[in-house]
């Protein structure tokens, strides 16, 4: 994060070129909208948390939160639901980021939920903990009495997400009712709710994958190395390349390959597909994303379980 030049309010005013017009780029408009949504949530809710996964979208969210409340600190903690199946790089980056930002980082573990009998590990080899996270997340929100949780979800990601609101209501069971969403007009956001209910707030709703990358480049936001091309042991499974590691081991009949890859999204080792790539800089990544023929979630085996996998998980209270 040291690469982000935050100017202290007491420093010398910067010289500004006279503005040729009041035109704003789409990135400037998206940033302003996200900042507006974050401030609105902070104004309307008592105990928001920012869901932090360690992925690029949540890193961008932290960056936007810093900007939205600058020169103050953003008035909410980060909450990470740790499946225990993360890339080790993700955890390292998370801790460094929280320290450099100086914000509170709360971590809740899926393993604890399993140990307490709140949920069960999937049977079989390389179990996915993707759906189990929901239990841990909802328990954590209840424990923290959080009335709003910021997420980095975008409408371009997945068809069920295309219908999300900025302020998305969740019932006392954390469930999303897509057929009965509150209409959201202009930029008036209704965060009213009854006790026990909460909201998911999605400031990046109108961003696309390309917007996120362009913004990362524009703002000079630091990312985990996973996003840049590097050599790694991988396995080809169900048409998707998966990184090998402690929680994702070779199955009988599979062979490991060593390839030059990078992640387009970062989730669990067990379900995040990686991509063969030579992109080592943000410019190269942006060119790659702009010409990509597959969506970033195309590599997510969690979405490929059925046509409505995301919708079903979201109804349960997923991110």
């Amino acid at each position: 994060m040291s690469s982000t030049p935050y100017v202290s309010p007491s420093s010398e005013p910067e010289r500004h070129e006279p503005r040729p017009s009041y035109r704003r780029s789409h990135l400037a408009q998206l940033e302003s909208e996200a900042v507006y949504v974050m401030r609105e949530a902070a104004g309307q809710f008592e105990r928001p948390v920012l869901l932090f996964s360690g992925g690029k979208d949540s890193i961008v969210m932290v960056h936007l939160a810093r900007k939205a409340f600058w020169p103050g600190r953003f008035p909410f903690p980060l909450l990470h639901i740790d499946t225990g199946h993360n890339f080790p790089e993700t955890i390292e980056f998370r801790d460094r980021l929280a320290e450099s930002v100086g914000c509170e980082l709360l971590v809740r573990y899926v393993q604890d939920s399993i140990d307490r009998g709140r949920c069960q590990e999937e049977p079989g080899p390389n179990p996915s903990r993707n759906t189990l996270q929901t239990v841990t997340l909802l328990d954590a929100l209840r424990e923290l009495r959080a009335d709003a949780a910021f997420g980095g979800g975008r409408r371009d990601e997945e068809k069920a997400r295309a219908k999300e609101r900025f302020f998305s209501h969740r019932d006392p069971f954390g469930q999303w009712d897509p057929k009965n969403q509150r209409p959201e007009l202009w930029n008036v956001f209704n965060g009213r709710k009854n006790r026990g209910e909460h909201f998911r707030v999605f400031p990046l709703s109108n961003w696309t994958e390309l917007d996120v990358w362009q913004y990362i480049a524009q703002e000079g936001i630091a990312l985990p190395d996973l996003y840049f091309a590097h050599e790694r042991e991988v396995v080809r499974r169900d048409g998707v390349l998966l990184a090998l590691g402690e929680h994702n081991r070779l199955l009988p009949g599979e062979t490991a390959e060593r390839l030059r890859i990078r992640c387009r999204t970062v989730g669990d080792l067990t379900c995040t597909g990686v991509w063969e790539s030579d992109a080592t800089t943000l410019d190269e990544i942006i060119r790659e994303v702009a010409s990509a023929r597959v969506t970033e979630r195309g590599g997510r085996s969690d979405d490929r379980r059925s046509e409505t996998a995301m919708e079903d998980r979201k109804k349960q209270g997923y991110f």
Partner: peptide, 11 residues
């Protein structure tokens, strides 16, 4: 390349 990446477009 079918889409050039333009960081400064209108919305």
């Amino acid at each position: 390349l079918h889409t050039e990446a333009h960081p400064d477009t209108d919305l």
